[in-house]
Design a protein around this nucleic acid. Structure first.
Lengths: 313, 313
DNA sequence: ACACGTTACGGCAACCGTAAGGATT
DNA sequence: AATCCTTACGGTTGCCGTAACGTGT
């Protein structure tokens, strides 16, 4: 097992360019630092530094280890800070963060104003980036559009958010409200954000019939999709919560497909083994309870590391 | 300084639910594991575990530390593997990775086939994600559209890639070739990928005149922008290398703006302190030399952690 | 003379296991 | 009785500084 003490000495030697200046900087003796270097090289079973005239220089292997060493120390140092700071770090997938979760965050902050730990720091990004934040310990709780069930985490079904088929106000299907699946043949369908999984969902629910649609991906954001649809160039499938305002204003027409229930499962993911009183667990339970009270989706705890199968589509 | 040995014991206790099973799993005695826990809590100056009947449970602080602990051990374990594996891990910002760097990678791999370490693993993503990979030691070399000069890394100017104003083949400006800046007033301009920095560059070069343009952001990918421009709905500013094929095929018209030189600086970034013979340094020098031979941009070494100021626009 | 890397040596704390104590189920 | 956490004790190892040696500038 590598020791962070050794790593720190290695880094100091590389950056200071020598044993003695590194020792000065660390407040240690040169012999101790040398011992650390030896220990690290013995542990990794590889030479990290080349002894040259008047100093050290990293070998090719040492150079490759360098950013990893920095990352280790940075994480270790951050640990001390993170453990103490009480704010809940919430990471949300773009659509959720923009359209769905902000009210809940405000409600929670208002409701727990008296208690400690009511602050919530919201970070919004793509679903893969959210997963990365969670895995690196940069977020305590994640609200996501899909979760791949990687070990060490617990996923709970938050809600099933309906997907709406949207059309421009002058589209030929705009006034129909409810249309048969066959009415979509040959229509252009704009895909959602990369990694949002809408395409995968569509294929799973519509089966072979989905092939009759001309899907266009790569538009990036939901806002870009909405703009494209408003201009009449095609249809799209988006979370209902993302278009309620445009629908009310008559800028977008909402359609249902007969006999096909399309909704997207949204997940709340936390590290496994949380105690009940942990801020992340409390906010998660607050969200789940709020959804249950709203008469929403049936709640399955999805304990363990069980989660929905499949990745982004 | 935290010790990874302690972290490993903490994690084992949480996951195994108790001292003895954790000790069994680690091949240690319970007293040793207990000593590790005490050491960790003393180091962090905070209680991580609550002693309950028949086992341990993490406190709120311990729960927050959990994913960080996993990240630490994962990185440490990965270090051993990464240091040994010889493949060069190259991360490239989307446009560079898709349009500009693939030929160079192929040339390098072909040229150094006889030597060891000629393999290059290319990862493509947004500029912020590329920076993250570099910083976490998940890439040895990054080719980027902007670099914020964070410490511990060296940025070298690779080339100045010209930006082209593109229009659809039936756009009113399509045949003009070279237009005055005033001809663009009131035109719709599609922005590039989020974080690509094109918007920032535009504002810096055009100054107040840029405000006369109606810029639309959020289209996501360059491919989406190209499609929008081809349909005649507006103009855009993209790397010339990204549209050479469409220009040759007559699907897009290339325009120049009189008196305004727009080009984007592309950077090669590595961890600071690389030895000359490190794979990352060798491939970087290969790219720089190739650009110099092509009579390209003047090369400034940009030593130290100096880099272009400013972030994404 | 100066700074560097390296080695030798001794004090001290930490690691580790064995064994036993006390509490809970 | 079984299992748990905890403590006490001793062998061994690693950390650390002081001091000295050899080398290159």
């Amino acid at each position: 097992m590598i020791e962070l003490l050794h790593v720190r000495s290695f880094l100091a030697v590389v950056e200071a360019g020598g044993l003695r200046p590194a020792a000065r900087r660390l407040g240690l003796s040169p012999s101790s630092v040398l011992e650390h270097l030896r220990g690290l090289e013995r542990e990794l079973e590889i030479a990290l530094l080349r002894r040259g005239a008047g100093g050290f220089a990293p070998t090719a292997e040492g150079a490759r280890f360098l950013p990893l060493a920095r990352a280790l120390l940075r994480t270790a140092e951050e640990a001390g800070r993170v453990v103490r700071s009480g704010a809940l770090r919430l990471a949300a997938s773009t659509n959720i963060g923009v359209y769905l979760i902000q009210d809940a965050v405000a409600d929670y902050a208002a409701g727990s104003r008296a208690e400690a730990g009511g602050e919530v720091a919201l970070w919004i990004g793509g679903n893969p980036e959210v997963a990365g934040r969670l895995e690196r310990g940069e977020a305590d709780l994640a609200a996501m559009e899909w979760w791949d069930g990687r070990p060490g985490f617990e996923a709970a079904l938050w809600r099933r958010e309906p997907l709406c088929l949207i059309a421009g106000p002058r589209h030929r299907l705009a006034g129909r409200g409810r249309v048969p699946l066959s009415a979509l043949d040959g229509e252009v369908l704009f895909g959602g954000e990369r990694g949002s999984g809408t395409g995968m969902l569509l294929r799973r629910r519509l089966g072979a019939r989905a092939d009759a649609l001309r899907t266009i991906d790569g538009l990036g954001s939901t806002e870009a999709v909405k703009r494209a649809v408003r201009s009449g160039r095609g249809l799209s499938l988006v979370l209902r919560g993302a278009v309620v305002e445009e629908a009310a204003a008559g800028q977008l027409a909402l359609l249902e497909i007969e006999g096909v229930a399309l909704d997207k499962e949204l997940w709340l993911v936390t590290p496994a083994g949380l105690p009940r009183q942990a801020p992340a667990a409390r906010f998660r339970d607050f969200l789940l309870a709020g959804e249950a009270a709203r008469g929403g989706a049936p709640i399955s705890p999805a304990a363990g590391s069980a989660g929905p199968a499949g990745g982004p589509g």
